[in-house]
């Protein structure tokens, strides 16, 4: 059942301490800042976060890490010029890092959503990142066995949703959104706008509504309108 939340704080309710949370975005493109800020305000801690990066500068995921809400991060590219909050936490031994090649990260998330128990990938074969993993030579080529990344919740950002939960994205902000939406048990989506069902061309829908549990419109006007109804609105008739 799809819920439309009045605010980001309403939207992220139900994420408990110690949860594994997929967070969309590549750098700041597609990063659901409103939902992350709400998660920060909620005080939830001990999280395992899955994201391509480990936060940039002083916003979004970087702040969650600064506040030591993240016990472990699973990512491909933590270190960059403005990842100072991650760097500090890592050097202090206050965050665990599981480093995964980017394509393997995306495919492990995709596998979770698609009900795949694992897969053999050539990426990383013979490298440090394959140490301790099962390998197999198939048709003369080496492969590494990788397992799916399931999650309690996904926080993602899309451009628009309709009241059936269908999503469209914008440019390279799409990145991990579609695979994360499918992989989590509970998918929460920040959008600019929620439109009536029928307003999105079904041929253009990127993420079908079956994967979406909660929507929140971040656009100020829409959020204010939703606030009048308060809390969470259950969508029975799209």
């Amino acid at each position: 059942m799809l819920l439309i939340a009045a605010t980001a704080d309403d939207a992220i309710r139900g994420i408990s301490d110690g949860a594994t949370v997929l967070i969309g975005g590549f750098g700041n493109a597609g990063q659901p800042m409103d939902l992350i800020d709400a998660l920060l305000r909620s005080g939830t801690t001990g999280l395992t976060v899955v994201n391509n990066n480990a936060g940039q500068a002083d916003a979004g995921l970087a702040v969650l890490i600064r506040e030591r809400r993240v016990r472990k991060i699973i990512c491909s590219f933590p270190r960059q010029s403005d990842s100072w909050h991650f760097d500090a936490a890592y050097r202090a031994g206050e965050i665990e890092l599981e480093l995964v090649p980017q394509g393997t990260l995306a495919e492990r998330i995709r596998a979770a959503g698609a009900g795949i128990g694992g897969f053999f990938t050539p990426t990383g074969y013979g490298t440090m990142l394959a140490e301790g993993k099962e390998t197999r030579v198939i048709d003369g080529r080496g492969y590494v066995f990788e397992t799916p990344i399931h999650a309690d919740a996904a926080l993602i950002k899309a451009l628009k949703a309709d009241r059936s939960g269908n999503l469209i994205y914008r440019k390279t902000a799409r990145n991990f959104g579609p695979v994360m939406a499918a992989a989590a048990r509970h998918t929460i989506v920040q959008v600019s706008e929620v439109v009536q069902s029928g307003e999105l061309d079904p041929e253009h829908v990127v993420t079908p509504g079956i994967y979406v549990d909660v929507l929140v419109a971040a656009e100020p006007g829409r959020a204010a309108a939703a606030q009048g109804r308060g809390g969470l609105e259950r969508v029975d008739t799209p």
Binding site: P78, R79, G103
Partner: peptide, 21 residues
């Protein structure tokens, strides 16, 4: 992708996928 230095924070990104694919 990594110098292997003890104090280095490793980051691999898409390098292994590109090199392999």
């Amino acid at each position: 992708w990594h110098t292997g230095a003890e104090d280095a924070i490793p980051a691999v990104g898409g390098a292994m996928d590109l090199a392999t694919g």
